[in-house]
Design a protein around this nucleic acid. Structure first.
Lengths: 185, 185
DNA sequence: GGCATATACTTGAAGCTTGAAGTATCTGTC
DNA sequence: GACAGATACTTCAAGCTTCAAGTATATGCC
């Protein structure tokens, strides 16, 4: 792995940062999920899917888009959407242009459910992540994480409307009703 | 959730940081695991368990210790240790002092396996996490993550020998052979 | 036009995690 | 010294994720 003999072991600072990163990556989703599951009956991933739909045009998105922007496999998403469909929060629609493609659409019930539970979720995120963090620290964390993400998956950029779980007011007015361009296929 | 009406939605910087944190928490373990699985036939979690054992006195640890320091439930650990036992990398030993308790012990095969694959793992961690990150950035990331961890689980401190997966040379000499204090029960 | 290949999913089986029991052992208390 | 309750696991069942097909449609090329 190394051109010469010994690999480049981590120094103490790197080790500590690495341990903290791993602990955070493991504990944070679990903790967020505990609150969501208890209050809204949703996993973090399910919530995230609903949130992305809620911010999409027409509350509609292609399955493959949704999978890509939620960092999941299409298979996983398909199973999850099936579960969400059974709950009545999402509906599948076949795309007329490309009949291989499927749109997932957030139902009114799904939107209402999300809207009802978003505030508690944001409060939890605030408590777990942002409490005790100044603006400067937020900025440097953000930058450091961007570097790491670029290492993991070069060229990935944030989806303008990805949301990573609703963290601002769900916007009812703009895109839902009329003939604005669809978010789906 | 809020004393007055509106909850405290995240501002743009916070949103971006949050999205990056979530993406990192999801993508990083998966990517690390891909390399480990391919090269060493281990999940990230399994690797982590072996690594913690390798750094413990007598290469031995109580199950409950191991569960606590690897952020896992005892149930999950029990299943994983069963799998690792089947591979011959770990062995269970009942603790003589407290017969409810069980020690997990890293076998010589387990140690050898770990030693063989540690360098490639560290190289991957270096590539994914530390490439392009200066010492100052490492420090501020570390500090920010510490704040978050404190929010998630107040009072948690790093285990002096937790390791979060081997990231330095596995130390053969110090603790293995003689009558040094045991790591287990 | 027809065939090979690529795309966009869906499905099924296997494996892993989780949560809720269940078992064995220990500790404190009266 | 016996009984209640706490610990330290293990096991079972259910659910979720993943991996490997399978299906249907679209695209490119001759």
């Amino acid at each position: 792995m190394e051109p010469n003999g010994e690999p480049q072991w981590l120094n103490d600072d790197e080790r500590e940062m690495w341990m903290r990163l791993v602990s955070t990556a493991i504990l944070l989703p679990g903790t967020i999920e505990a609150q969501l599951k208890r209050d809204a009956g949703l996993s973090f991933f399910e919530y995230h899917v609903l949130a992305m739909l809620s911010e999409a045009e027409g509350r509609t998105r292609l399955m493959s888009d949704l999978a890509h922007w939620s960092n999941s496999s299409l298979s996983r998403l398909s199973h999850v959407v099936t579960r969400l469909e059974k709950q009545g929060w999402v509906r599948r629609e076949s795309c007329p242009n490309d009949r291989r493609a499927t749109n997932a659409v957030l139902t009114d019930e799904g939107f209402a459910h999300l809207e009802a539970h978003a505030p508690a979720h944001v409060a939890e995120v605030r408590r777990l992540v942002f409490d005790g963090l100044g603006a400067a620290q937020v900025a440097s964390l953000s930058e450091g994480l961007a570097t790491i993400l670029e290492n993991i998956d070069p060229g990935r950029t944030s989806d303008p409307r990805a949301g990573a779980s609703v963290t601002r007011k769900t916007d009812d007015s703009a895109t839902h009703d009329s003939k604005s361009p669809e978010g789906g296929c």
